[in-house]
């Protein structure tokens, strides 16, 4: 993966469904740049962020895991 630099980091660690997705939507709407980095501890967010991106048309650039933390890079459409 080519290195992308995030314009904003959204930390949803400690939150569970549906809060990470609700916060993600808010963050993307308010994002002035292009790329959002999202951190989550909810394992359900792996499937949910992917589904959310497919539905809303924003691009999920990458989805990875760092220990117990899930890291997503999303590009605003």
């Amino acid at each position: 993966m080519t290195e992308v630099k995030e314009d904003l980091t959204l930390d949803t660690k400690g939150l569970s469904c549906p809060m990470p997705i609700l916060k993600l939507k808010k963050a993307i709407d308010g994002l002035s740049g292009q790329v959002l980095k999202m951190l989550a501890s909810d394992p359900g967010s792996v499937a949910d962020v992917k589904a959310w991106a497919e539905k809303t048309g924003h691009t999920l650039l990458s989805s990875s895991q760092d220990g117990a933390i899930y890291v997503f890079f999303l590009k605003k459409s």
Binding site: C17, P18, I21, L22, K25, W52, K55, T56
Partner: peptide, 12 residues
Amino acid sequence: LILATTAVAMEM
């Protein structure tokens, strides 16, 4: 409540 709020977040 979970489904309705998430739906709005999914632009529904």
